[in-house]
Write a protein that binds this DNA or RNA. Structure first.
Length: 220
DNA sequence: CCAAAGATCGTCT
DNA sequence: GACGATCTTTGGA
């Protein structure tokens, strides 16, 4: 299967989408979760380059957030990277079979992160299609945290990498204006008591690659 | 279209 | 030893 984006030279595409600076990540986590919308996740792998625009994120705010892996200040080999500086990859395995990509956030010592929940394919779609075992619906390539990591070839082997240098980085893309950002409750954390109601999920309004469309929406 | 169930293993208790 | 910041498949309406 061929795709128009594959005909663009890899080198010229990469040159047009350089990494954002480390300073980009240095802002309050709820702001970062929104600032990441429209930016592009790029992975340069041996088998090729794949990239997607971020259209959905969730913020996890550390020791006081019952839905966060770092709730209560838990410090384990898995959560360690969240205690470091912002802009690093926190990749974890979920349900034994899927990998989820997070961007560490907040200043050093504050174990916070932003989960990347959905992308819109922008480069290397043929490669993504292969990695995803050729789904029938294009949306199934990258709509969902487990799907997008599989499409981009991201695994727990990429744990702890800086996301402002190759081979895995966040590239400049669009700034999404506030009026196009919608917020709602986070997905799959019903056990988290009061934290289940926090509106810490953000997505681009009406975007076709958003993973789940909830009933209770609210503009930012 | 939706709900239910199974898959499968790293991580923490 | 239990469970999950998920996804796929299946079966019924």
């Amino acid at each position: 299967m061929n795709h128009p984006s594959d005909t663009i030279g890899v080198e010229s595409w990469l040159k047009a989408h350089p990494p954002l600076p480390a300073s980009f990540f240095r802002r309050p986590t709820l702001e970062l979760a929104q600032a990441l919308l429209g930016k592009i996740v790029v992975h340069i792998a041996p088998e090729g380059v794949a990239a997607g625009r971020i259209v959905e994120t969730e913020a996890y705010l550390g020791p006081h957030d019952k839905a966060a892996h770092s709730y209560g200040g838990r410090m384990t080999p898995r959560t360690r990277i969240m205690y470091g500086p912002p802009g690093y990859s926190y990749v974890y395995k979920i349900y034994g079979m899927y990998d989820c990509l997070n961007v560490t956030a907040g200043p050093e010592g504050e174990p916070q992160a932003v989960l990347i929940r959905a992308l819109e394919p922008v480069f290397g779609e043929t490669l993504m299609h292969e990695r995803r075992r050729r789904p029938k619906q294009r949306k199934l390539l990258t709509a969902g945290p487990g799907r997008l990591t599989q499409a981009l070839g991201i695994t727990t082997a990429h744990y702890g990498l800086p996301l402002f240098v190759p081979p895995l980085y966040i590239a400049c893309g669009d700034d999404v204006p506030p009026e196009r950002i919608v917020r709602g409750k986070r997905i799959g954390i019903d056990y988290a008591e009061e934290a289940r109601d926090y509106l810490w999920r953000f997505w681009i309004h009406d975007h076709p690659f958003v993973s789940v469309l909830p009933k209770q929406n609210r503009s930012v």
